[in-house]
């Protein structure tokens, strides 16, 4: 009746629309799996304790910290990263706006910031500046003054 504890678990999931199967050590977290095993290095690791937001990806369409989820928990889910998460085209509009507004310096926070912004525009297509600042409160950018990021999201929403 009691399931046997496992050290490795087979998983099968979709990543950016592609089916991926793997047998993974259970302690591997999602972002290490995406980066290390799948080579999806667009998602970054900034703190490994859920504060900086650099590892944020979409799991079943929901913004998720890649460092706070085991890869085996992503079994049977649909994971999207900066490399592929653009079914709606919203991301491309944001990328162009970020470029024009110089809403990026070192670029380390940028992929997660873009995913957060795209999700904001999905749930709130015309956000105010304050709503944008509030929404990205979990995404640390250490280089810009956040203002160009807010400008770019406003521009993309227009």
């Amino acid at each position: 009746m009691t399931p046997e504890p496992q050290s490795h678990v087979p998983i099968s999931l979709k990543v950016n629309g592609e089916l991926v199967t793997a047998e993974l050590p259970v302690r591997l977290n999602l972002v290490d799996f995406l980066r290390g095993d799948l080579g999806l290095t667009g998602t970054h690791i900034g703190c490994e304790h859920g504060i900086c937001g650099a590892c944020t990806v979409l799991v079943d369409g929901r913004l998720t910290r890649g460092c706070l989820m085991l890869a085996v928990q992503a079994n049977s889910t649909n994971v999207e990263t900066i490399e592929g998460a653009d079914a709606s085209g919203r991301l491309m509009v944001l990328q162009h706006a970020f470029h024009r507004s110089n809403a990026i310096q070192c670029g380390f926070c940028t992929p997660a910031m873009l995913l957060s912004a795209a999700e904001l525009l999905r749930v709130n297509p015309r956000p105010t500046r304050d709503e944008i600042r509030d929404w990205i409160s979990g995404n640390l950018c250490r280089c810009t003054g956040y203002q160009a990021i807010v400008d770019a999201i406003i521009e993309a929403a227009a």
Binding site: T41, H99, I104, G107, L114
Partner: peptide, 21 residues
């Protein structure tokens, strides 16, 4: 002038040290 390099970073195509293995 917007930065050229930013396009690559915006696309998730940056190359940071940890990305090189």
């Amino acid at each position: 002038v917007p930065r050229d390099r930013a396009k690559r970073l915006l696309a998730g195509r940056g190359c940071f040290v940890e990305d090189i293995s």
